[in-house]
Design a protein around this nucleic acid. Structure first.
Lengths: 140, 140
DNA sequence: ACGCAGTTGATACCCAGTCTCGACAAACGG
DNA sequence: CCGTTTGTCGAGACTGGGTATCAACTGCGT
């Protein structure tokens, strides 16, 4: 399912600015910040307000088409992704990310719940390292 | 090892403001934001500058005596904790947290590395839910 | 084509966190 | 115990991410 149709199906209006933001995101590799999109939009002479970009990102995040990351640096970034529960491995050099499935995490979560007595209803796992390409290329 | 001695042993000066911040943190339950500490310090009429609180938090985080969290809301918060690698389960109502050990996570990380080809050198796992006390108490 | 929400953009605004710099005080040596 | 050195502090200016406001606009159902 493509981004623009997903917006429509969720009952939101399929507006020009939203299409434009979706396009900006599709043209990206790796993660990006809201500021990146603002800059990119300005470069392409798109008439999209800053607030609109933030709003579009919120919307896409809500639909699960984009996910918010908290980089170790403290920055907030986003990555485009498929709308189902999963996690990311993020390259700390180039920012490319790969989705990962359960991989036994569910079991870990259950064990923690059992041992601590917490009823766990959400979790976040982020992995950072070098992607295969960056490992192969330069090692400064 | 208590906080103030840890600061000394790491080669940093054991100053009044740092002691004060350490004390503010020890008196807290659950997670707290930098702004919380600033407000608390003001209430107690402590003459500690805002910048100093941020600096002290950075220092304590570097020593591993405090850990930075990214709440689902996007806020940055901290929790006091022991200085070794671990993760937290955080109560989404009261903010109390419990530390959790490996619990099989290491194996998960290794499997992901093997499958994606990334060389993973850092990870973050945060679990959110209700702590036993909040489960027992009100269910609004 | 019409009309009404939902959406937009400009702008002002708010708040977290950082930077600067003169004043200060912890640690150490004598 | 006092002087010196140098890390640290506080105040305030500053930056940058993100949000609130509100009049103007436009997608979309009828």
């Amino acid at each position: 399912m493509d981004t623009t149709t997903a917006i429509g199906q969720a009952g939101y209006r399929l507006t020009g600015p939203r299409r434009a933001v979706a396009e900006l995101i599709e043209d990206r590799e790796g993660h990006f910040t809201a500021a990146d999109l603002v800059a990119e939009a300005r470069e392409r002479r798109l008439a999209i307000g800053r607030a609109t970009i933030f709003r579009a990102l919120d919307l896409l995040a809500e639909l699960g088409l984009v996910e918010r990351l908290d980089l170790p640096s403290g920055e907030h970034a986003y990555v485009a992704c498929e709308p189902h529960h999963h996690h990311h491995v993020i390259c700390s050099r180039c920012g490319r990310s790969a989705e990962i499935a359960d991989e036994g995490l569910r079991a870990v979560v259950e064990r923690v719940g059992a041992e601590t007595g917490y009823s766990i209803d959400a979790h976040r796992l982020e992995l950072f390292g070098l992607c295969p390409r960056c490992r192969r290329d330069g090692r400064p």
